[in-house]
Design a protein around this nucleic acid. Structure first.
Lengths: 346, 346
DNA sequence: CCTCCATATGGGATCGATCCCACATCGGCG
DNA sequence: CGCCGATGTGGGATCGATCCCATATGGAGG
């Protein structure tokens, strides 16, 4: 097929096959070809086989956008995360993508970098694409309400901004935080600092509540000055932590509310020459790879990110299939991985 | 508008607005509405403003699938990676997603887990969605040739299976490997092991070539038994590394060809009680977060994953715009981050 | 023999946006 | 005054697949 001739003209080479071409090549109508390929409706068995053989031969792949337009139902879900370079979100993405593939959905992924503005843009893009539903680690309540108005199901993951208005898949932050704080208390710690990102998010709020509950349950007073809100800026967080650890009466243990803060705390401790766990016990909410590589390893609350992502996809698909079912919040429990960074205070 | 009446019936609430509804509400035809909204063709300025105001009021968002179908041109790119949970791929995904957003493209992401079968399925999905192009970290040559037949541009990233047949964006593996090996040689190492994943991939092949070249340039003989192919299975790799380090005449330095092997080497050294860098110097190709957290830090070849992803998007868009331009391979250079894991041999 | 139903097939409309083209209007200019 | 090009508008076709419906055929049953 390399020689010239009319068919060899550059530019007019092999356009992608459409169902019409499959039908013509098989000597049937578009309708029959469609039934043969989708398996919906009556087709004579031998015609079905012939059409399918012809389609294979032509390398026919149905146009999903055309099908979507006609059926008014998409097989794509939108996924919006805060920071793919953070292993927490990357793990989430991995879980979502696995489960989506299993359920025959494709995934449109965007990263909003934690910005509400980008989040809003992404929401509009998802509407334009007419996705079947959206999974989001929200940074505002806007997305869920906007998409609700457009009748697009939303599942909030990790944290919740629209409780009662849309489904959510969360980690049981309160219980996990309480449990890990209780362990520190039981091993003798009293001055336990909590370094937290943002207390208005449900993650921060619930982790703080668990921490408080641990003191309450132990009947111990809580030194409010040991609760430090460090925000999202890494540099600013390190400054806060340095101040905290440099106090006249420093904490004997530090509970970092996320993996970024744990890294800041770990580095700062090293910088100040504080031995872990000798002079400072360290606990992290969220377990990421480096915590098991360093010596001593960092005790951490392990959130199963893959399971979180899978649960989010399952919940979203249920919602797509039953738009009127009652709103649901799924809570996944977290486990504690005890490593060398925690020990009784000196 | 909360009171009952015919419009208040449950179920028939606010369908999504179409351009036809915008046109009717603005008192013009679909054609005029389309011109007003897209800015293509003649429209009277006051009509344009009125149509846009009406569209805003109705919360109109054009259906991207319908537009795509009609224009026969999509604004989505397909992205296929091997393992989102690995920080290398996660960083790549982050870079791609940033750049795609900047260029007004949306991203369909899939994870093939390193399986050629899943890769082939994903390729078909991308064809079905009629994406404008595909970025892939390939595991076989099939994807690129299949998509080429479908006239869908492909950019291979990180490694190359279809040299000459499609564009690629790669790291200059040879130079980086040679440079880092030369550093080891210059600091006095002679028995330098190379633990590599797979020598048939361009990554492995080129890193091996760089390693060899370093010995050649130094005029030193190379002990072939120190080149170990460990494959992709982590457990098997650890067994290989354990054997390697347990030899009668063990290497004084180990060069791990990727971050997973570096982790295996690091853990195995600890397990065997080998001091780093005292008894073994360690170097990794690919720098991931834990390498800067451990003590001593691990000397590593740093690949800028974000830049790699961004370059891939740029190359893909150029290809989309100029389908006939000559095939291009972009090489990004890597830098060496020297940390405490390397020192002259004892 | 005629009716009826299950099976089988094709034509036309449809989804939403775009775009070609026909047609209308208006101002300028010879 | 009439012609022409620039401007503005709407109708219909189109992208590819699906699906409703009309029509056709064959065998079973009254």
């Amino acid at each position: 097929m390399t020689a010239g001739g009319a068919a060899g003209r550059a530019g007019d080479v092999a356009r992608r096959a459409t169902i019409r071409e499959v039908a013509e090549a098989a000597g049937v109508s578009r309708s029959t070809a469609s039934r043969a390929l989708t398996g919906q409706g009556y087709v004579a068995p031998q015609v079905r086989d012939r059409v399918r053989a012809v389609a294979d031969g032509l390398g026919y792949v149905p146009d999903a956008t055309a099908r979507h337009l006609r059926r008014q139902a998409s097989q794509s879900i939108g996924v919006l995360l805060s920071d793919l370079a953070n292993p927490f979100y990357a793990g989430l993405a991995a879980g979502i993508s696995q489960q989506a593939r299993k359920r025959q959905y494709t995934m449109m992924l965007a990263d909003d970098g934690g910005s509400a503005g980008v989040e809003a843009e992404a929401a509009e893009t998802f509407v334009a694409l007419r996705v079947a539903g959206v999974i989001v680690t929200p940074v505002s309540a806007h997305l869920a309400s906007y998409l609700a108005r457009q009748r697009i199901p939303v599942v909030e993951v990790d944290r919740q901004f629209s409780a009662g208005a849309c489904d959510a898949v969360l980690v049981d932050n309160g219980s996990a935080a309480q449990k890990v704080t209780t362990q520190l208390i039981e091993s003798g710690h009293r001055r336990i600092a909590l370094v937290i990102d943002e207390m208005h998010w449900t993650t921060g709020r619930d982790r703080l509540a668990g921490y408080r509950a641990a003191f309450g349950a132990a009947g111990l007073p809580l030194d409010e000055s040991l609760v430090v809100s460090a925000g999202w800026d890494v540099e600013a967080a390190r400054v806060e932590i340095r101040k905290l650890l440099g106090r006249a009466e420093p904490p004997t243990a530090l509970f970092a509310a996320n993996n970024v803060l744990a890294e800041a705390a770990f580095r700062t401790a090293a910088e100040l020459g504080l031995a872990i766990p000798g002079q400072l016990s360290l606990v992290s909410f969220d377990d990421v790879p480096w915590m098991s590589m360093v010596t001593p390893g960092v005790t951490a609350v392990r959130q199963d990110t893959a399971a979180l992502g899978e649960a989010a996809v399952s919940q979203l698909i249920e919602r797509i299939q039953s738009p009127l079912a009652p709103v649901r919040t799924v809570l996944l429990s977290a486990s504690i991985v005890t490593r060398g960074s925690t020990a009784p205070p000196a």
